[in-house]
Simulated scan of single mutants.
Amino acid sequence: MADPMNPSTGDQQQQKYRQYNPYQKINLPYRQIYELPTSPEFLFEEEATKKRLSWGENLTFFTGWGYLTGSLLGAAKGTIDGIRSAERGESLKIRTNRILNSGGLAARRSGNCLGSLGLMFAAMESGVTYLRDGDDGSLTTVIAGLATGALYRAASGPRSAVVAGAVGGVTALAAVAGRRIVKRFVPI
């Protein structure tokens, strides 16, 4: 051992022996683990320049969010209807069953309705984008909304299809305007 009173013996001792470090040969890039890049990483340059979703991603996104939103709204409406339709003198089990059945029925109906609307909108938007040679602007979204509304109510007659197309176009226009407002005022 080195003599604490004589520093020269400690230096000689250190030069004779070195400490064993089992991780010396392994270069662990620990800084790369903790210092993550802030921008997205892409394998190919084409992915970095792409600004929109592919048609499959678009289809999945709108269909999934439509079904989820419709199910949640339908479940809330069905639950409220189930609570309102409860009769005096019913047991707790009967009331609970009525509420769950009503909520589940409304959730299925509205989820399927909005999911199919999302599917049609995504298909229309991808088709309109293709027809406009890849131009994915606000006009594409509004045209897809018009076409989706008209197609959804086409079986009910031409008047119903025109009204539904107008409602779809106005809704798509409101979504485009809302997106621009959010981008302008909300720092994301």
Rank of each mutant, 00 (worst) to 15 (best):
A150S: 12
I181S: 02
G103F: 07
G78I: 06
V128W: 05
F42C: 07
R108P: 00
M124P: 09
A147H: 08
R95F: 06
A177L: 09
T140R: 01
T148G: 01
A154M: 08
L105T: 15
F185N: 06
Y30W: 11
Y30S: 11
Y67P: 02
R179W: 10
L119Y: 11
R153Q: 10
A175V: 15
E47I: 00
L73C: 04
S110H: 07
V162G: 03
S138Y: 09
L72A: 14
E90N: 04
V142K: 02
G137Y: 05
R18Q: 13
G178C: 00
T141R: 05
L105G: 14
L119C: 04
T60F: 10
A147R: 01
W65K: 09
Y130P: 00
D136C: 09
Q24G: 06
S160D: 15
R108N: 12
A123Y: 07
A144S: 14
P29T: 00
Y23K: 06
L131V: 13
N112H: 05
M5Y: 12
A144Y: 00
V182P: 01
A48P: 04
R179F: 14
L43A: 12
L73Y: 08
Q13E: 08
S160F: 02
L146H: 07
R88S: 13
W65G: 14
S85P: 07
A150G: 09
P40F: 01
I33G: 05
N97P: 03
M5L: 15
G10V: 11
D136H: 10
Y17N: 13
A155T: 12
V128M: 00
S8L: 10
Y17V: 15
D136M: 09
Y20Q: 06
F42T: 05
I181F: 07
V162I: 10
G115E: 00
T69E: 08
K51Q: 13
S85V: 04
S160M: 04
T38V: 07
L105F: 13
A166Q: 04
D81W: 00
P187R: 06
K25T: 13
K183I: 10
G66E: 07
E45H: 12
L105R: 14
I188N: 11
A177D: 13
S110A: 11
